[in-house]
Deep mutational scan, measured.
Amino acid sequence: MEVRTIKVFTTVDNINLHTQVVDMSMTYGQQFGPTYLDGADVTKIKPHNSHEGKTFYVLPNDDTLRVEAFEYYHTTDPSFLGRYMSALNHTKKWKYPQVNGLTSIKWADNNCYLATALLTLQQIELKFNPPALQDAYYRARAGEAANFCALILAYCNKTVGELGDVRETMSYLFQHANLDSCKRVLNVVCKTCGQQQTTLKGVEAVMYMGTLSYEQFKKGVQIPCTCGKQATKYLVQQESPFVMMSAPPAQYELKHGTFTCASEYTGNYQCGHYKHITSKETLYCIDGALLTKSSEYKGPITDVFYKENSYTTTIK
C-alpha cells in the first residue's frame, strides 16, 4: 500500500517557510505537534488534498525554529505562539472599519479597549522592536488589523473576551517599542525636605499616572512627601515624541487643539466601556464603527496623549 502524501510549508514567522512532505494517514499533531492554519487549530486533523502548498504555523520545537521565533517575536515564552494563534482565530472574524481616516474595530468580545489602543497607536510616533509587531502594525494602518490585535493580546497575556485596560495595554506595548531616546527629568520640591531631581528613561519617561493635564504637570502637581507634608512635583525636561497622561476616570474637559487623542471610560472596574476622542479640525468621538463630532467635550476621561518633541522648564 502506497503512502499518500502532500507537500506543505511549516513556519513560526510566515517569513521562513520549511518544506514538509506530510503523510495523509496521520494527523498534523502526530507529525508536527500543535499546528495552526489561519489561526485555526488543526492539530487533530489529517492532511487533505486542499492543504497542498498551504502554510501551517507550528510551535518552535527545534533550534532553527526557536531562533526564527525569537528573532521575529522577541520572546522565548513557549506558550506565546499558541496564544497568538488562538487569538487570531477570533480577531480574523472582527470587522476593521476605516473611521475618520483611522483603522478602528467594530465592537465584539469586549474589544473596546483594543480599538482605543489601536486608534491611539496610529496617532503617536512609535516604532516597535519585534519585527512581528512592526509588520502587523503597518498592515493594521492599511486596514488589516487582525494579526496586530492578536499579537497585542498575546504580548499582554490576554484572551479574547476578557476586559482590558488601555493604560495597561499601552504599557505592555511600550515595553516592546523603541523608547531608548526618551528621557524625563522631574523635580520634587518640599518646604521641609528641599528639592530632589529624578531622571527617568524609556517607558517611565512617557507615562504618568495622577493627572490628565500635561500643562498642569509642567506647572506642578501636589504629591505627598515622605515627611508627610505636601510637596510639588513638576516637569523639568521632556525628550520624547509623545507623552501619555493618565488618571482614574473623572469628568474632564478636553479643549480642541490642546491634545492629540484621549480615552474615555464609562462604567466601573468590573464592567465598563471605552471610547476614543481625537482632536482634528474639530473633536471626534470614535466608538467602534461609530463616529460623532463636537466642538467641545466633557466626560469621564482616563488617558490623554500629547505630541511632544523637546521641553525644558522655565521655572527657576
Rank of each mutant, 00 (worst) to 15 (best):
R4V: 13
R4W: 11
V8P: 07
F9C: 09
N14D: 11
I15P: 06
L17G: 07
T19Q: 10
T19V: 13
V21N: 13
V21H: 14
V21Q: 13
V21W: 13
V22I: 09
V22R: 03
V22S: 09
Y28W: 13
Q30P: 06
Q31A: 13
F32A: 02
F32W: 15
G33T: 02
P34S: 12
P34V: 12
T35I: 10
Y36R: 06
Y36I: 04
L37Y: 13
L37G: 07
A40H: 13
D41K: 03
T43M: 10
K44N: 14
N49L: 14
S50W: 14
S50M: 12
S50V: 10
E52H: 13
Y57A: 09
L59P: 05
D62Q: 05
D63R: 06
L65H: 10
L65R: 12
R66D: 07
R66P: 02
R66G: 14
V67G: 13
E68F: 00
F70L: 15
E71R: 14
Y72R: 11
T76F: 10
T76P: 14
F80P: 06
F80K: 01
F80E: 00
G82C: 14
R83E: 00
R83T: 02
Y84L: 05
M85I: 09
S86R: 12
S86Y: 06
K92L: 11
K93R: 13
K93A: 07
K95C: 11
K95F: 06
Y96F: 14
P97R: 13
L102D: 04
L102N: 10
I105T: 06
K106T: 05
D109M: 03
N110R: 01
L114H: 03
A117Y: 08
L121T: 06
Q122A: 01
Q122C: 04
Q123T: 03
I124H: 04
L126H: 05
K127W: 03
K127R: 12
F128H: 07
A132E: 00
A136Y: 08
Y137M: 15
Y137E: 01
Y138W: 15
R139T: 10
A140Q: 02
A142F: 10
E144P: 03
E144R: 05
A146M: 06
N147P: 11
F148A: 06
F148I: 04
I152E: 00
I152Q: 00
L153G: 08
L153K: 02
V160D: 02
E162Y: 00
E162V: 04
L163M: 09
L163E: 10
L163I: 08
G164L: 03
V166D: 00
R167A: 01
E168K: 15
M170Q: 00
M170E: 01
M170V: 06
M170A: 00
M170I: 07
L173Y: 07
F174M: 07
F174S: 02
H176V: 06
H176L: 12
N178M: 08
N178F: 04
S181P: 05
R184S: 15
R184M: 05
V185H: 03
L186Y: 15
V188W: 00
V188C: 07
V189L: 08
C190T: 05
G194Y: 04
Q195K: 14
Q197E: 15
Q197L: 10
T198I: 15
T198W: 11
T199I: 12
K201C: 10
G202K: 04
V203M: 10
E204P: 11
A205D: 06
V206Y: 04
M207S: 04
Y208L: 05
T211R: 00
L212Q: 00
L212P: 02
S213N: 04
S213L: 02
S213M: 08
Q216A: 12
I223F: 13
I223L: 09
P224G: 09
P224A: 12
P224S: 13
T226I: 12
T226P: 13
C227W: 01
G228R: 05
K229S: 14
K229M: 08
Q230N: 08
A231D: 01
T232Y: 09
K233V: 13
Y234V: 07
Y234H: 05
L235R: 01
V236E: 02
Q237T: 12
Q237D: 05
Q238H: 04
Q238V: 01
E239R: 11
S240E: 02
S240C: 03
S240K: 02
P241Y: 05
P241F: 05
V243C: 00
M244L: 00
M245N: 11
A250C: 07
A250N: 08
E253D: 08
E253V: 09
K255S: 04
H256F: 08
H256K: 12
F259H: 03
T260H: 08
C261L: 01
C261Y: 01
A262G: 00
T266S: 13
G267D: 15
H273G: 07
K275P: 10
S279I: 00
T282E: 12
T282V: 10
L283I: 14
L283E: 13
L283N: 07
L283Q: 00
D287S: 02
G288V: 04
A289D: 15
L290A: 14
L291C: 12
S294F: 15
E296V: 14
E296A: 13
G299T: 05
V304L: 07
F305G: 04
E308V: 10
N309M: 09
Y311I: 06
